[in-house]
């Protein structure tokens, strides 16, 4: 084999093969056939990912601990918290709905955040290469199951349904949740699998 396979990349959109080039900071490589983003400067991307995952972890903790909205119906007050909502579903016997909602708005996003942080620590010390590899695979799979952004839109839809009957106040967590979704959509979900693997290989191979 004349070429090193690590220097090649196949577009995930149209399957065209390209040769990788070294990118300067803040530049992006795009497919010559369909124009889809192939990869960006890896060091740059990953530095951002670590900072934003710690931010996301803090935001997520706040968002899930305090009430997102407060509702007054017929003189009675009621809060919407993520744990409270799940407990209600389980108490009423909706185990399937409860578990799937739990996975897509709590477990999957947490796995994504914690994987980024764990990956940063492991690659910094260059330890547990095999374990780090599993983390990367797991991170990529978990990302497609994290649906906090859709949950946020659903809150708005639910609010409109309640408008006629209830007085609604926004709680502390609503802002945290909105910020979390912004970080999640623009940073954590935006890093391509190939960038993660390039970063992984570089971190462990260079001395």
């Amino acid at each position: 084999m004349s070429e090193n396979l690590d220097d090649l990349i196949i577009c995930s959109h149209c399957e065209t093969i390209h040769k990788k080039v070294e990118l300067p900071e803040k530049k992006v490589a795009k497919c010559s056939v369909c124009g889809k983003k192939l990869y960006s400067n890896v060091e740059d991307t990953f530095k951002k990912a670590i900072a934003y995952s710690i931010t996301a972890l803090i935001l997520f903790t706040i968002a899930s601990m305090f009430p997102i909205i407060k509702v007054y119906i017929a003189g009675q007050e009621s809060d919407l918290t993520i744990p409270g909502m799940l407990i209600t579903l389980f108490n009423e016997g909706f185990y399937v709905v409860g578990s799937i909602v739990f996975v897509v708005i709590v477990i999957a996003p947490l796995i994504v955040i914690l994987s980024y942080i764990a990956l940063a620590i492991l690659t910094y010390f260059k330890i547990f290469r095999g374990f780090a590899k599993h983390i990367v695979s797991f991170l990529i799979t978990s990302r497609s199951w994290a649906m906090v952004d859709i949950f946020l839109i659903s809150i708005l839809v639910a609010l409109v349904k309640l408008f006629g009957y209830a007085q609604i106040n926004f709680g502390v967590s609503s802002i945290a949740l909105i910020l979390f979704v912004i970080v999640d959509t623009f940073v954590l979900k935006n890093i391509l699998p190939v960038e993660l693997w390039t970063y992984f290989n570089r971190a462990y191979d260079e001395k």
């Binding site: 119906i73 017929a74 009957y165």
Partner: peptide
């Protein structure tokens, strides 16, 4: 999933004695 979340949110919030 929007509809499922909406149901979960409504069920989580609206559990008063009257409604």
């Amino acid at each position: 999933m929007v509809d499922v979340f909406v149901v979960a949110i409504l069920a989580g919030v609206v559990h008063m004695s009257s409604v």
